[in-house]
Design a protein around this nucleic acid. Structure first.
Lengths: 145, 145
DNA sequence: AAAGTTGAAATAAACGATGTTACAACTTTA
DNA sequence: TAAAGTTGTAACATCGTTTATTTCAACTTT
């Protein structure tokens, strides 16, 4: 799986929940309006964030809420929640290397570890930023507008 | 643009050129057989590697050669050569954030820098490995088989 | 001249991401 | 209790990207 726009949309959604959650009900329709992403997709993303323990939503009663403090949610948590990185990882491999060729049958042994290290470097960088920082930046920019 | 299998295929191709280049003509047909990737795609990849100054190929006379020592080619060079990371970067953004929403019109200001940092972390990790190391590992594994 | 190869364009096929429609289950409020 | 609004989910449609395929001119070597 590659990095999809669901990740940035999810961050956008979480910022909205924190910024607007105090004064109004943040519904999937509202979030669809702010992000420009289809409301059904928004609900899918919210569902993945809920499974990851990041937000709380309930059928019927509109409005999403954060399940924990913004300081305890990193960009990596969000990334992990919405991207299915479980199986194949960030890099895609050509699928049919020839086992009869000594290079072909060993390419994974040589490359897999290094690709995982590169992916880990990206993920570790995402762990450095919390939603609290992102929200703080957003509020600051809004105030200065 | 996302990370495609062209990257791992390109590394595979370069290893083959180095491992088999001494004893035979490494044609796009041969590389297609080893990688399992269509010969025309192989020629496309070779073309991108040539534009990046990594390999040398000539019309008519079959056989690709490295344009510089394996110790001077990093995985990042290969990545850069075959992935069109010029424009949008590794992360894809949802395309229509609402400019009428204070969050929507500032999401890029808040996120772009952090996403670029994450991408840079991945790319820096790829810079740490040279083709020389990858080839050495490959030859060692082949010998021990 | 013949055989084999590269470079490149045009098109097709396969896959994945996103959007859309539809509807059941649920909550809130009148 | 009924109405209105919302979530969760499935099924399908649409669009774009990736990879494969076909075709052929230009080139090199023998």
């Amino acid at each position: 799986m590659q990095i999809t726009s669901k990740f940035t949309a999810a961050v956008h959604i979480l910022i909205c929940i924190e910024v607007f959650g105090g004064e109004m009900r943040v519904t999937s329709d509202f979030l669809s309006g702010s992000t420009g992403v289809n409301a059904v997709i928004v609900r899918n993303v919210l569902g993945q964030l809920r499974e990851a323990g990041i937000v709380e939503t309930r059928q019927g009663s509109g409005g999403a809420h954060l399940a924990k403090p913004t300081s305890e949610i990193t960009l990596y948590d969000v990334y992990r929640a919405v991207e299915c990185t479980d199986d194949t990882g960030l890099f895609r491999f050509h699928e049919n290397p020839n086992a009869k060729c000594p290079v072909g049958r060993n390419i994974h042994k040589v490359m897999d570890g290094r690709l995982e290290a590169a992916q880990a470097a990206l993920e570790n960088e995402l762990k450095l930023t919390t939603l609290a920082e992102v929200v703080a930046d957003t509020k600051k920019i809004i105030e200065e507008e």
